[in-house]
């Protein structure tokens, strides 16, 4: 894999790339599209594109970054096409910058989720608007600038989306924990 990342991959390397990177790409698609079936289709489509674009790959970039970028762009395209609203990531006029605190403390809730499963479930329950930026930030590990580029929004807006997304995530985990304890 390391060798693949330093050399310009040739046609023969494609099979390796596919085998080693499929799950990564598939997981991303599943997070972004929130559907296993659609993620399978999307991952297949992404690799079809990777296959044809292999020549344009710049080895200076890590391979996984390149792949995830293609996958993110593709999935967001899919979301845009499915939804009636094209600008899904724009903030509503009422959504102030510098949003207020909600009082549910960070970390505690995430830590309380014993396994990643709960976090992923909570993430999947979020709307696209907040789910996608969070996935790009924590799965792709992109910075605000890069996320803004993919979503086509300003960097400052990304900050708000991520902050609000995390707040909603905490709230959901918190509610879920209360519900479980209440039982």
């Amino acid at each position: 894999m390391v060798a693949v990342e330093t050399l310009k991959p040739s046609e023969q390397d494609f099979e390796d790339i596919y085998k080693t990177q499929y799950r990564r790409v598939f997981s991303l698609c599943r997070y972004l599209l929130n559907s296993t079936e659609r993620a399978e289709d999307a991952a297949h489509e992404v690799f079809l594109r990777v296959h044809t674009k292999l020549d344009s790959y710049n080895p200076a970039l890590p391979l996984s970054t390149w792949l995830l970028k293609i996958a993110s762009n593709y999935c967001i395209d899919v979301l845009r096409r499915r939804g009636t609203e094209q600008r899904i990531f724009n903030l509503d006029p009422g959504e102030a910058f510098d949003p207020p605190s909600t009082g549910v403390s960070p970390l505690a809730e995430v830590l309380a989720a014993e396994r990643g499963k709960d976090v992923r479930a909570a993430l999947n329950a979020l709307s696209e608007k907040y789910r996608v930026p969070l996935v790009l930030a924590y799965y792709n590990e992109l910075d605000y600038e890069q996320i803004g580029e993919i979503l086509g929004v300003e960097r400052t807006q990304v900050a708000v989306l991520i902050f609000r997304g995390k707040q909603q995530l905490r709230q959901r985990l918190h509610d879920e924990r209360m519900r479980m304890q209440g039982r």
Partner: peptide, 18 residues
């Protein structure tokens, strides 16, 4: 907040998931 971010990265990238 920083630990939370690290936790989130870990949770999301959990390989067992796929």
């Amino acid at each position: 907040l920083q630990s939370e971010s690290r936790m989130l990265v870990q949770c999301l990238q959990d390989v067992d998931f796929a």
